[in-house]
Design a protein around this nucleic acid. Structure first.
Lengths: 265, 265
DNA sequence: AAGTGGTCTAGACCACCAT
DNA sequence: TGGTGGTCTAGACCACTTA
């Protein structure tokens, strides 16, 4: 529990013992730098560390893991690329803000988007049914999952009690049997998938277009008919490339905008 | 001009002399690996190489540049991260297809987007003027460049002779003096910036929302008034984080959609 | 002044690929 | 079988940060 005061900012120096380093299996075919990397990643993504914490020095890590400094640098270099840590000569290696990871969560979850905008999210389930994928369902589902069993969920989404979006979600039940028994007035879809089913969505594609509100959508969203709507179609894929969810959301253009940053390295 | 035949595929082995390596200035403060990296990048992005060409071995490069193998590996590793090359143990280092770079160009340039969709792009300049940034201009410009000189360009954008978008661009002239003398009926804005001014845009943020067409926009885009439009606001930043361009484009929702894929690592 | 990450070298052994 | 990139070590000097 030693703290130092640097630049008028209390920062925490992580002690080497906190890493709970165990000796490696030297006969393992897995490269040493990768074993170090995985061990550090597990530690960095746990709740034992916070943004800005200072990692032990490279030489301390090399000593503790029982490998050369270059091996440690290889592992740290990969974690820098991943955005988990940053390095400063003369200063040390610090735990970074996980903006990428947070942005990805935002891309998945309406609830987190609302929280990010400072709004209190809630949902009203308008319809919930399970049936098989039909040929007039969204194309990505038809192409890859025709005839598969899906949960279809239609929800009206609110931020601070204002209706913001009307969302229709198709979830392929083969990956999450029993999903239809949850109450999605109370639970976030992506929270249930990640926490109850341990499902990792690793890729999401959004296609954005525009339309004008018809009578039903105007009534539900409490806007004039013919008011502009932003239409976001989303495909959520597993690591294997299989589709698990497809969604169509109609957002009020006066309450919501879609932002994306492209970075060239 | 020696070719080898491997796996029924003619591949070209790049000879070390083709790189035209000159001795480095050893007193330069620029790290050796970075000098190597820049030299290789210039070579790889020139028309002297093609996708699939095989680079000289790491030891040959180390010898030719007069540095250690590890220094060469650092430079090559960074170029791998950048997507310019790939490596295969036992095989060698090969020139990669530059898919990442192409996607980023797409995000910049209307012309390339149209080509990607198989449409012939062209533009009609509706207005072109230079003036100073005023307080009622787009916020990102006002915040960072109030009073700076900008070129304002309003263009009607076509794909295969159909009007698709109406675009208003603000370009900060401090980075590209004389830009106002180009004829943007003929030239792509981002082509002129990158080729004539050697300007590298490394970050673009898009904000997407929706509206309905007013009379003027409906006439220009040849649609009904009140038809839905997709509104894309874009900020283009330099490596330094400074803003060089801001654009607002109104796209016909029946002709254009905005697609973005998020990937979690 | 002491310690940090940044850079660099020389050398070693390995798994993999082409021949 | 010979050569490639992949991994790893030991050691060195530097610029920079912090005290």
């Amino acid at each position: 529990m030693e703290n130092k005061r640097v630049n008028n900012l209390a920062i925490r120096q992580i002690h080497i013992d906190e890493l709970q380093i165990k000796p490696f299996d030297p006969s393992s075919p897995v490269p040493l730098y990768y074993q170090v990397e995985e061990h550090l990643r597990a530690f960095l993504t746990s709740d034992k560390v916070g943004v800005g914490d200072l990692l032990p020095t490279e030489l301390q890590l090399a000593d503790a893991y029982g490998v050369g400094r270059h091996t440690i640098r290889t592992a740290l270099g990969r974690l820098v690329n991943e955005g988990l840590i940053t390095r400063k000569a003369g200063r040390g290696t610090v735990v970074a803000a996980q903006t990428d990871r947070r942005q990805f969560l935002l891309a998945q979850s309406f609830s987190r988007q609302m929280e990010e905008m400072g709004l209190q999210p809630h949902s009203q389930v308008l319809a919930q049914e399970t049936r098989l994928v039909q040929s007039n369902d969204p194309r990505p589902l038809v192409i890859r999952k025709l005839g598969a069993e899906v949960l279809i969920l239609e929800r009206l989404r609110f931020g601070n009690d204002d209706p913001i979006g009307l969302q229709r979600s198709f979830v392929v039940l083969e990956y999450c049997p029993g999903l239809e028994t949850f109450d999605f007035n109370q639970h976030s879809l992506f929270d249930v998938l990640s926490k109850h089913y341990q499902i990792r969505v690793t890729q999401i594609t959004h296609t954005v277009t525009a339309t004008v509100a018809d009578k039903r959508r105007a009534d539900l969203l409490q806007i004039e008919p013919h008011a502009p709507l932003l239409v976001v179609n989303s495909s959520s894929l597993l690591e294997t490339g299989e589709i698990i969810e497809y969604g169509i959301t109609y957002y009020r253009a006066d309450k919501y905008e879609y932002t994306m940053t492209h970075i060239s390295h």
